[in-house]
Amino acid sequence: MSSHFYVNKPKKLCLRFPLNIIYLFIILSINGVAAQNGSTKVGAIIDVNSRIGKELKAAMEIAAEDFNNHSDSGKLILHFRDSGRNPLVAASAAEELIKEQKVQVIIGMETWQEAVLVADHVGNHSQVIPVISFAAPPITPPLIQRRWPFLIRMASSGSAQMKCIADMVTAYNWKRVVVIYEDDGYGGDVGLLALLSEALQDGGAKIEHHLVLPRVLSSHV
Results as ranks from 00 to 15, higher is better:
H70A: 07
R85W: 02
V169C: 12
E110L: 06
V131F: 08
N49M: 12
A91T: 03
I45R: 01
E61G: 10
V42G: 04
D120P: 03
N124V: 05
R146Q: 15
P130M: 07
T140G: 06
Q113E: 07
T170P: 05
V42W: 05
C164A: 15
E114F: 00
T111S: 01
A90F: 01
I165D: 09
A35W: 11
I45K: 04
N173D: 10
N49Y: 11
K41G: 06
S71Y: 08
D82I: 00
S73P: 02
E100F: 14
V33R: 09
S133W: 02
I62S: 11
V33T: 10
V118C: 01
H70S: 05
P142A: 11
R51G: 10
L143Y: 13
W148S: 08
G84W: 00
L97Y: 03
V131T: 11
I129Q: 01
M60I: 14
Q145Y: 10
R85L: 07
E110C: 04
Q36R: 14
P149S: 14
V33C: 09
N68H: 14
D72Y: 01
A166M: 09
E96V: 05
D167N: 12
N173R: 10
D66G: 11
D167A: 15
N86L: 00
L97R: 00
W174H: 13
R153N: 01
R146D: 14
G53H: 12
I77D: 02
P141S: 11
N69V: 07
M154S: 06
H125D: 04
M109N: 06
D120A: 02
T111W: 01
V89F: 06
A91D: 02
E65D: 15
P141Y: 08
M109Q: 09
Q104R: 13
R147N: 04
D47H: 12
P149H: 11
V122C: 04
L56D: 10
